[in-house]
Design a protein around this nucleic acid. Structure first.
Length: 440
RNA sequence: CGGGGUAUAGCGCAGUCUGGUAGCGCGGUAGUUUUGGGUACUACAGGUCGUAGGUUCGAAUCCUGCUACCCCGACCA
């Protein structure tokens, strides 16, 4: 992709409304544009990041055995009356009346709808376990949205819903998601810590928030520092093995870790002082087991081996991709701009043509782009008329993991300069070697 | 919802106190210049001063209502 033909509105100055670094950088690097309070348009560059985050989430959800579907954003109020949440949810729910005066709502979550779908088809324990998920826009009319897409009213959520015959089976479903979440955040370069959490209005008695530490986090968190060095479960983890997963989950819940609401100062005091981490955190995922809270009132029942019908045991599991974008920026940036982790970078490399119009630099830039694409990698070629200094500043701001600097000076010796954004390391090498290095 | 702010060109701001018909920097366009860390110069384009009403010969400026947005708090799958 040539930058001169792309749509990347970069801001040199910081819009005054942006208080935290991820919000500032998301605006300056042309990722998002605010349209109303808590409502954002995703510009092309930001959308590429969002899509890559969703791709990682899908891979790990699928690996764990979950199955993707897609439910609508607009739901019927009647459905929510069945669970009793239509009145309970309060002003945070955006209620809509259609032309026939039917009461509708913009979904803040989908427990009711997925339960309705489930009960329409599933009758037997033989169809279980089942975990269905989707990635869909949600709307919660937050009292005060803030920090860009960190807490927005309209946001994208991956929400998964598990169905099992009993509590023991549901526990395994919970563990599947637990492990999938550890892997998902790790792949995005984030150190997530599962913390015992309040279940809130969703109910249930087993819940963990996945928190990443960040000074701008919205909640105070307390944990044992060893969590930061725990090894994340590998890709070949057997998600069907009850024992294997429960061993992993036991390990990851063995040490103290709690959010402010669940904090137990006495228990935390038992942690050696040198290992106590008292910090702020961003919630990037939240998982719940809530048993039959919805299946009972909504009559989602399945027959067991004994022929007796019983309410299905459920859990729900959320990740906010539109919150992950700022969370990743908070965790990975420097003075000059964003530093995208390789797994979710909008392009793999920036190719800086320091002298567009020069046949040598033009040719090498074109060759590099094609060579990268042949390897399944993407590149953004800066072919604009800017000064080299401006191009360096732009490349650092938008934070692609690699920069290939192509100028007449280096080409005189047949070399380009390869810069790693994260470390700032710059090495002169042949164009072929640069491609090789990025692909490896 | 309580408290505190803001609204003037795409972005950041001055001008408002003391009313006289709008300005600076960045950005944009054209050109000259420069060419490995945000180059310099010249010219040009771009604003119903959030909105509705009032006072006045005259309102960005004074008064009143409204709206939007931001910050703190409470709130928060």
């Amino acid at each position: 992709m040539r930058l001169s033909r792309y749509f990347l509105p970069i801001l040199r100055e910081t819009p005054k409304e942006a208080e935290i670094v991820s919000h500032r950088l998301a605006l300056r690097a042309g990722l998002i544009r605010q349209e109303s309070a808590g409502i954002y348009a995703w510009l092309p560059f930001g959308l590429r990041v969002l899509n890559r985050i969703c791709a990682v989430i899908r891979e790990e959800q699928n690996r764990s055995g979950a199955i993707e579907l897609l439910m609508p954003t607009i739901q019927s109020a009647d459905l929510w009356r069945e669970s009793g949440r239509y009145d309970a949810y309060g002003k945070e729910m955006l209620r809509i009346t259609d032309r026939h005066e039917r009461e509708m709502l913009f979904g803040p979550t989908n427990e009711e709808m997925i339960t309705e779908i489930f009960r329409g088809y599933v009758r037997s324990y033989k169809s279980l376990p089942l975990n269905l998920y989707h990635l869909q826009w949600k709307f919660r009319d937050e009292i005060r949205p803030r920090f860009g897409t960190m807490r927005s009213r309209e946001f994208l959520m991956k929400d998964a819903y598990s169905f099992d015959i009993d509590q023991a089976a549901a526990r395994h479903a919970y563990n599947r998601m637990f492990v999938a979440y550890l892997r998902t955040f790790d792949r995005m370069g984030l150190k997530s810590i599962p913390m015992r959490a309040d279940t809130g209005p969703i109910g249930g008695d087993l819940s963990h928030e996945f928190i990443i530490l960040a000074s701008t986090g919205e909640s105070a968190v307390f944990c044992h520092k060893d969590y930061l060095d725990f090894a994340v479960p590998p890709a070949d983890t057997n998600f069907d093995s009850v024992e294997e997963l429960s061993t992993i989950v036991s390990k990851w819940t063995s040490l103290y870790a709690a959010t402010e609401e669940m904090h137990d100062a006495a228990a935390f005091a038992q942690v050696p002082a040198a290992s106590q981490v008292s910090a702020r955190g961003i919630e990037v995922g939240h998982i719940f087991y809530f048993g039959t809270k919805y299946s009972e009132p909504m009559r989602a029942v399945v027959a067991g081996p004994d022929g007796v019908e019983r309410p299905v045991h459920m859990g729900s599991y959320g990740i906010g991709p539109t919150r992950l974008v700022p969370a990743i920026i908070e965790a990975s940036h420097d003075e000059a701009g964003i530093i995208w982790p390789d797994a979710i970078a909008p392009f793999n490399a920036a190719i800086l043509n320091l002298k567009p119009g020069d046949s040598a630099t033009d040719t090498v830039c074109g060759t590099l782009e094609q060579a990268l694409e042949a390897r399944g990698l993407s590149a953004l070629v800066d072919d604009t008329d800017e000064r080299p200094g401006a191009k360096f500043a732009t490349a650092d701001l938008i934070g692609l993991p690699w920069q290939i600097i192509v100028g007449p000076k280096g080409l005189a010796e047949g070399k380009v300069e390869l810069k790693r954004r994260a470390t700032g390391e710059r090495v002169l090498m042949s164009p072929e070697d640069a491609v090789e290095r990025i692909a490896s």
